[in-house]
Design a protein around this nucleic acid. Structure first.
Lengths: 182, 182
DNA sequence: GACGATACGGAGCGTACGTTCCGTTTGTCA
DNA sequence: TGACAAACGGAACGTACGCTCCGTATCGTC
């Protein structure tokens, strides 16, 4: 990673940038050759830097998930844990819905992006925000972090099906509040 | 369809049955050759009866969507439109989640299965149930039939991500009730 | 500037799948 | 039962895509 030839480092960066753009637009479905062409390199070069298309995808996605996790950690200490949590929930969904790569990563049932290191950060930060909101009596008690991720995936599916319908996410948020049945 | 040779009619039925089973298990992703093998016929035979894999899929799926529509129509006249609607909503999700074919059909953003004839029946029946529930003051006013389909798709994504978690759909149902913000 | 190591590009391989084609089989009807 | 049309099966075609291979170009060093 350090004593790399100059052109190698340059190409690696170009590949990452191209992958970020292409995956964001079309998700995992984008052919690797397209990424290579967009980066202005050959397919072989992509494979010299990343062992597989999946690995490249993970590299692009984990960075972004990491950002979500940091954002969450910055919010943990704030007042009004209920609103903080719900705002964060909505913001994550809005951000992710703009990026097919994130959608695909979160939707993977096996959830590789979640189970790996950086994913754990997000998981625990999300769970922490949730716990505080529940302790404050703002969010219903009968859900946990896993449920939350499932709901995020569901909201992303909603968003994809009917884009820009802001009020549908609010339905879920209303359902999450403690006021209801539980 | 009528003056068909006996073996042709028999094979057509076998193909439909096999397609129903295979699509239900694995959705549109199942290779057509698998369906042919399961039906005990060659791939060519499948294509003599259906112009494309997609057409076969539609044939299988539309029948089932039609059932949902009839079920909805039978409920329109009942008392307590609010509970009728919400029960129906939950039941459709539960049934569909057992059948990948339905999930895939509903999730198609373009929504072919919905826009075609039989899909319209379902759409309008669903919209009618919703309208009555809203008139009865049981369901929030700020949604329409399209929103509802989006929510169904979302709930199916949730169900796929974390199977059998019955209470997650309830969150959406609680969010749909009129009690909340709107 | 020359030379060895490193990286590059893109043709090509293997696989999967939808679809078509055609030699063979089977049903129907006289 | 013979003959023709209809239907069958599955090999083969075209395409798409992940990935590999290797002859060529580029970099770093002396």
């Amino acid at each position: 990673m350090e004593k790399m030839r100059a052109d190698a480092r340059r190409n690696r960066a170009k590949v990452l940038a191209a992958a970020e753009e292409a995956f964001a637009a079309d998700g995992l479905a984008v052919p690797l050759d397209d990424i290579a062409r967009l980066a202005g390199v050959g397919a072989g070069t992509v494979y010299r830097h990343f062992p597989s298309k999946e690995a490249l995808f993970q590299a692009v996605v984990l960075e972004r998930i990491q950002q979500f996790a940091e954002e969450a950690r910055a919010l943990v200490a704030g007042d009004d844990p209920g609103e903080i949590f719900l705002d964060y929930f909505v913001r994550v969904i809005k951000q992710a819905s703009l990026n097919r790569a994130i959608c695909d990563a979160l939707a993977e049932t096996s959830g590789h992006a979640f189970k790996a290191g950086a994913g754990d950060d997000f998981r625990s930060a999300l769970a922490e925000l949730l716990r505080r909101a529940q302790d404050a009596g703002a969010v219903r008690q009968d859900i946990d972090g896993d449920d939350l991720r499932a709901l995020i995936v569901g909201c992303l599916a909603v968003e994809r099906y009917s884009p820009g319908s802001r009020h549908l996410v609010r339905i879920v948020v209303d359902g999450l509040r403690a006021s209801a049945g539980n």
